[in-house]
């Protein structure tokens, strides 16, 4: 299958500190690729480099075969991003916020698209509510609607379920899987929740201290190390 995202020898030094060190991987069309690792492993830094928010120290990033520096706008209009660490303007209603982003991304028939997404995430009733009155779980879902507005071909999600209660987190994961299956989008997903990654990802990349220490499907990895689940394997790997 085609690699939509190609990363080769990606390295990021912050003042000499190696946050990401010589990592290489591909993300294919229609695949959920997980970046797993403990806090400080370099997951967020990697995503930020992929999104052009942080400049790599060295290495190559290609998305849709294009170079980020030269084709920033073209790439950004075909991908999207969400994270539990971002939010949306509090005084705007859900619908106003989504309209702003729909226009930024040049979404055709934005009203219809917004209605569709709100329905998928079961927050249609909140469309005229200002974001400040939403619970954090509801904000996360509005952010996910924002991230899907432009029907992205690649979705970057940085710990999207971190602020959700288990029930909503589970619902959100199922929705994301469903969207991925229906629209065959690629998702690059980070989390330090091993269970979540095992459930969600077609393949995972274990990162620790900026390096990739293992790659494969959750099943392959479990078999290789003889662990009962990814968490077992991760503890083994992190301590070795």
């Amino acid at each position: 299958m085609d690699a939509i995202v190609e990363v080769r020898g990606l390295t990021k030094l912050f003042n000499g500190f190696r946050a990401v060190e010589d990592i290489s991987f591909d993300c294919r069309k229609g695949e959920i690729l997980g970046l797993i690792g403990p806090n400080g492993a370099g997951k967020t830094t990697t995503l930020q480099m992929l999104l052009g928010l942080t400049t790599p120290t060295s290495g190559v990033i290609r998305i849709f075969g294009l170079d980020m520096d030269a084709h920033r706008q073209q790439i950004l209009s075909r991908v999207n991003f969400s994270s539990s660490y971002i939010s949306l303007p509090f005084s705007l209603t859900v619908r106003e916020n989504l309209m702003v982003f729909a226009r930024l991304y040049g979404v055709a028939a934005p009203k219809k698209r917004i209605e569709e997404l709100l329905a998928i995430f079961e927050i249609g009733a909140l469309k005229d509510t200002p974001v400040r009155r939403l619970s954090s779980g509801q904000v996360t879902r509005v952010c996910l609607c924002k991230a899907l507005l432009n029907a992205p071909e690649v979705l970057f999600l940085d710990e999207p379920t971190a602020s959700l209660d288990p029930d909503i987190a589970d619902k959100t994961r199922k929705l994301l899987k469903k969207i991925k299956d229906e629209q065959s989008i690629s998702i690059l997903y980070t989390s330090h929740n091993m269970k979540e990654m095992e459930e969600m990802c077609d393949r995972v990349i274990f990162m620790d201290k900026g390096r990739v220490i293992e790659t494969g499907s959750p099943d392959e990895i479990k078999r290789k190390y003889g662990g009962a689940d990814l968490e077992d394997v991760f503890i083994m790997l992190a301590r070795s």
Binding site: L51, G52, L53, R72, Q73, L76, S77, V79, N80, F81, S83, Y85, I86, S87, L88, P89, F90, F101, L104, Y105, G106, V131, C143, K146, F156
Partner: peptide, 18 residues
């Protein structure tokens, strides 16, 4: 600052707005 306060800055800078 409005975008900083509402943690919206990244949404803007990952959008196609140059």
């Amino acid at each position: 600052l409005e975008d900083v306060w509402s943690r919206n800055l990244l949404n803007i800078f990952v959008s196609p707005l140059s």
